[in-house]
């Protein structure tokens, strides 16, 4: 398999990115990035800090405007959508923020009710309270329903954010550094939770991370974002065997400094 070419299955991709360019002033972060996310796939994007990983997923939901290139989500070109169409696509795409981004003036229950009340069509015939409790149960936090975000630990906040994202039952889930800032045990719990969500909700996931353990366990496929382009692509095993020094750098263990 050629690790520099996007991988395409016979199914229609849920996300397609072609030649994405994005600059901030004179700093060009993305210089023609390509990506395909296929159904039921867990795609991990690896990259150094500041390489534009977060910018990339923000382009997918219209939080950051694209300078050049095509960004197609669920068959719709994101830069060409009007606000109403974009809001609809956003309900189909779940987004887990790096810092969880819980609304800190609301209880856990209100955090989960917030997206649901603005999209009552998503409730179908279900009761709001039942959906909220169900989402919290799926992340193991039903007992925290009346707590405020300030009363939760980092790992609990991440779980509540996952529950809030799941309540609209998205088709695609975007994770921005899901394990960053967590201890190894909690990080492992979050990884297991992500795998369970993928199995139960049958959603495709795009995971931004630089946590190699997370990437190894979660990914079906990985892309290395380097110098603003998809530098290499393949499975964890394929990339870990690469002889390219830039790819190898991601798999190298940290060595102590000899004094």
């Amino acid at each position: 398999m050629d690790i520099t070419k996007p991988y395409r299955t016979t199914k229609t991709p849920l996300i397609e990115i072609y030649g994405l360019r994005k600059s901030f002033g004179s700093n060009e972060v993305l210089k023609g990035f390509d990506l395909l996310l296929n159904p039921n796939e867990n795609l991990v994007i690896l990259g150094k800090s500041g390489s534009g990983k977060s910018v990339l997923i923000k382009c997918l939901v219209g939080l950051v405007d694209v300078d050049e290139g095509k960004v197609i989500v669920l068959g719709k070109s994101i830069p060409d959508l009007n606000q109403k169409e974009l809001d609809y696509i956003r309900t189909e795409v779940g987004f887990l923020f790096q810092g969880s981004a819980l609304y800190d003036s609301m209880t856990v229950r209100e955090n989960l009710q917030f997206p649901l009340r603005r999209h009552p069509e998503r409730m179908q015939h279900f009761n709001e309270e039942k959906l909220v409790r169900e989402a919290l149960r799926s992340v193991g936090l039903e007992y925290a329903i009346d707590l405020m975000p300030a009363e939760l630990s980092g790992g609990m906040k991440r779980r509540v954010a996952l529950a809030r994202m799941l309540i609209l039952q998205p088709k695609i889930i975007l994770y921005d550094e899901p394990t960053s800032g967590l201890d190894p045990i909690t990080a492992n719990e979050i990884i297991q939770l992500i795998l369970r969500i993928q199995r139960d909700y049958n959603a495709a996931s795009l995971i931004i991370t630089h946590d190699m353990d997370c990437a190894r366990v979660i990914s079906n496929r990985m892309i290395i974002l380097q110098d603003g382009i998809n530098y290499a692509e393949g499975t964890y095993t394929e990339l870990s065997k690469s002889t390219d020094p830039k790819v190898k750098a991601f798999f190298k263990e940290v060595q102590p400094i000899s004094l």
Binding site: Q83, R90, T91, V93, F97, A101, L102, F114, R118, L168
Partner: peptide
């Protein structure tokens, strides 16, 4: 201060991506 803190902790972005204005 309240909106500023919501902005830097991405709470405003979180509202936006949930399809809320």
């Amino acid at each position: 201060a309240e909106l500023g803190s919501m902005k830097v902790t991405e709470q405003i972005d979180a509202m936006e991506v949930s399809g809320t204005n």
